[in-house]
Design a protein around this nucleic acid. Structure first.
Lengths: 220, 220
DNA sequence: TGATAGTTGCTTGACGATTAGCAAGTAAGT
DNA sequence: ACTTACTTGCTAATCGTCAAGCAACTATCA
């Protein structure tokens, strides 16, 4: 694993204030951690690697964040913010369009060259059996489900989403679908065609959400 | 974490053959590993803990499997077999019913008291950034998607599934949905109601798969 | 403006704890 | 007796954490 500093931050350029120094160091550490976590996992990444990659020493993580767990928690929240920021910029007419746009936004974050999306996936996966991370991740899930719930209720009001659709369980299904898809893409990026996936995804969600005509024959 | 042996295998009972001894030891180790992985994760579980939990010594894992990675790979395949065995027992009429039954079977494995389902989830999650496990997991995903593909094609033939549904991308979506749902249940078992989830899951899949009447009005 | 003392960011050395793997030994089955 | 299952002592390596020290920045005063 390449652990060397990608770009040496402009530390040599000019006289910086203390707040600038601190902010630059902290950002460099978080970026380095995101890249390394995304590439090789959390436990496989040592604090020394993070410091080196960021262009600093091994001790800086402890100086800034205290412990490794604190860094992880901080980074998880920051990565999650990226998602919400992107979600918040969605501007569409109907609830159904909101859901579809959110799906696209999520997938775009995952395949983005910026490591934050994938780093969040890795941290989310690592949280499964780890008590220390579970609360943060559970809270993130909760908030993301609420985004979906809100779109569904909007759709109920504007008529783009059938009232038969129950908001909470459907939000859980949708979030699960996205996380699960992302996980498959992660371990085997070429196993499924991204374009077909996105289009089929839209079809499925549309079919599930839109008002349906009563079917001619009812199966058993 | 409680690491003590759950049930001492009947080693004292009777004179066993060598093959019985080997099989018992191996099974005890794999069971212990599954329980510990499911409860506290892979890297957090040491070989010594596995041996102790199985009622043996620290060194037995190395003796039987050589390395920790070999044990993990072996266990991942075994857990995956549990899923496929359960899938293979599904006996229904139509392709659509096959899909729905597969969903129920999957969810049942996850909430089962036996640790293999959750252990597989944990191993799958750990494989995200880990090159050594990714191929095994990617292969497992591939085979599971094929189960879905096969049901979808059955449904195409018997008319229970619309021909508009493309098998491969839909299989990926379905697998993602299940894995993602399971992951949510893992970190926050009480966040969503299991019954409502299952029922909504069926609704979504039904809506996506069944032939639809042409809608009265087409939205933009 | 320029020197100096104080504050804060950052580095380095060291410690304690943990762990996977192996080699040599013991016990159980044939 | 002899093979095979299993145990135990050992080693080398890794890593998180912290205390002490060094370097960069800031404020004060001449």
């Amino acid at each position: 694993m390449d652990v060397h500093p990608k770009v040496i931050p402009s530390k040599v350029s000019r006289r910086r204030t203390q707040v600038e120094r601190r902010a630059q160091g902290e950002k460099a550490l978080l970026d380095a951690a995101a890249e390394l976590f995304a590439a090789q996992g959390i436990v496989q990444t040592s604090l020394a690697q993070i410091g080196q990659r960021a262009g600093y020493s091994r001790g800086l993580v402890n100086h800034h964040f205290g412990t490794k767990d604190a860094l992880i928690d901080r980074l998880a929240r920051q990565c999650q913010e990226q998602f919400w920021k992107a979600f918040a910029e969605i501007d569409v007419e109907t609830g159904l369009e909101g859901i579809l746009a959110t799906i696209d936004t999520y997938l775009a974050q995952i395949v983005s060259p910026a490591p934050h999306g994938r780093a969040f996936l890795v941290m989310r996966a690592a949280a499964l059996p780890e008590a220390s991370m579970a609360p943060t991740i559970a809270e993130a899930d909760e908030r993301t489900r609420e985004v979906f719930v809100s779109w569904i209720e909007t759709g109920h009001r504007d008529g783009s989403i059938s009232r038969r659709v129950k908001a909470e369980p459907f939000a859980a299904i949708l979030l699960g679908l996205l996380h699960g898809l992302a996980a498959q893409l992660f371990v085997a990026p070429d196993a499924v065609d991204m374009g077909a996936l996105r289009s089929q995804c839209h079809d499925v969600v549309r079919a599930a959400l839109e008002e349906r005509e009563p079917r001619r024959e009812e199966r058993q």
